[in-house]
């Protein structure tokens, strides 16, 4: 279920991607955006964001979607390490 909180998270990542996107190539921008989320976002926020990747009709900007996908991979890697 997508809630108001989810909508805020999507809004936030789109805004971050827009600001980190300028003047960089897309891969660098996606990495920077992902790193920003890793550095500043709380655990539940990251997981909620990643869960939204699976949902239909979520308005990720292309760069934000790429960054969120990268974050999903990084979270999985991290989980496998902690285990």
């Amino acid at each position: 279920m997508s809630t108001n909180n989810d909508a805020n998270l999507i809004h936030m990542i789109n805004q971050i991607a827009a600001n980190l996107g300028g003047g960089r190539d897309e891969e660098a921008a996606a990495t920077a955006t992902c790193r920003h989320l890793e550095t500043f976002w709380a655990r539940p926020m990251k997981h909620r964001l990643v869960a939204n990747l699976e949902l239909e009709g979520v308005e990720f900007s292309p760069l934000a979607r790429r960054a969120a996908t990268l974050l999903a991979t990084r979270l999985l890697e991290r989980q496998s390490i902690t285990r």
């Binding site: 809630t3 108001n4 805020n8 500043f40 709380a42 655990r43 539940p44 926020m45």
Partner: peptide, 20 residues
């Protein structure tokens, strides 16, 4: 100690309204 950042004030508000 937890190695992940926590919620910021506006994030706390959103999470409160959501019930978490």
């Amino acid at each position: 100690l937890d190695d992940e950042p926590g919620l910021r004030i506006p994030n706390m508000f959103d999470a409160a309204i959501e019930g978490t």
